[in-house]
Structures are given as C-alpha cells and as structure tokens.
Amino acid sequence: MSTRSNTAAALASLGVLVAGWTIGTGNGQALAQTVATGTATPGSTGTASAGTTTSSAATASASNSTSAASTASTGSTTASSSATSAASTGTGATGTFTGDTESDRFGSITVTVTLADGKITNVTYTTTVGDQHSAQIEARAIPTLKARVLAANSAQVSSVSGATYTTDKYLSSLQSALDKAA
C-alpha cells in the first residue's frame, strides 16, 4: 500500500472516529474541524484533502482553510491546539499540526496532521483512556484505528477465530490452509 493510500485510509478511519466524538456532523466535516484547528495559521490558504479510499470507511475531505477556520472558531471543543511548526510555502500550509483532543465516554483521541504545501502527508494520533471520573470499565475498551490494533504475527498463529458464514461453509480459507498443511 502506498504512503498516500495509507494516509487516505488512516484519514478515512480517523474521520469516522472523530465524528463519533464531535457534534454529529458528517465525517468529512468532523475531520475538517480537527484539521482546521491546526491550519488556521495567518496567511495560510492551503487546502487539505484526502481522496476516497478503497476501504469501507467514509471519505475524509477538508474544506478550504477559510471555511474550515470558521468551523473551528465555532466548534464546541475546548482543548487548545498547537502548530509545532508551520510555514506558508507555495499556496498551502506546511508543518505539523495537533488538533483538539476529542473525547467521549470511551476515551479520547488527539490527532496530529503533517501538511506539505497544503497536502496531508502524515497523520498520527494518540488515544488515552477516559478521565478519572469515568467508570473503570469505560476506560477498558477504547476506540482504536485498525493500524493500531495488535497485528497478527502469522508465524505464531496456531488457529483462527472468525465468524462462520453461510457463503463459505468452512470458517475461512485460513483455517482450511492450516488443516491442509497438517
């Protein structure tokens, strides 16, 4: 998978995740809000966008900085955002931007977006467990991007757990391969 499609996929998932924490706008708008808090830099007129992905997740697309900035200014989040390095080169912003921390009952997520001339080149995020006031249980299962789910180390896998489907009677071709190899 290319870096670009990885980024697009991450963004798409991110858009969905962030949407869950925000005020119920569309996924793209929710992401735009997060991105905008970092890109509202004087002189910045860049456009950040991520294309449609091949995954089932939603398309994440940030609007131009003017409307995005206004979205941010009317947003309901209270955490401060920061731009660790930002400069206007060409027509778009360049730098690393950290968005507001978005929270819900499952925990919180803070997103950092790296832009090069207005284009998103990288997205990272940190997730935390819920605040100390929330019940212990609510902190235990938290939203995670697919890329952050513990990866399978195939060399160690001895059996496979999955839902059983009518369309492929056998659990999966993975278990089938395993049994044939025995």
């Binding site: 798409a12 998932s13 969905v16 995740l17 949407a19 869950g20 996924n27 995954s55 089932s56 997740a57 939603a58 499952f106 235990r140 299962a141 938290i142 939203p143 995670t144 991007l145 697919k146 952050r148 789910v149 513990l150 990866a151």
Partner: peptide, 15 residues
C-alpha cells in the same frame, strides 16, 4: 470492528 470502519479494543488487542 465498528460498522464505521474503526475498532474498539481492550488492552490485549492494542499494539
């Protein structure tokens, strides 16, 4: 796995 493309995981499933 959520219907919106994400995941919810307890500690053992987080990398």
């Amino acid at each position: 796995a959520t219907t919106s493309g994400g995941y919810v995981a307890t500690a053992a499933f987080r990398g």
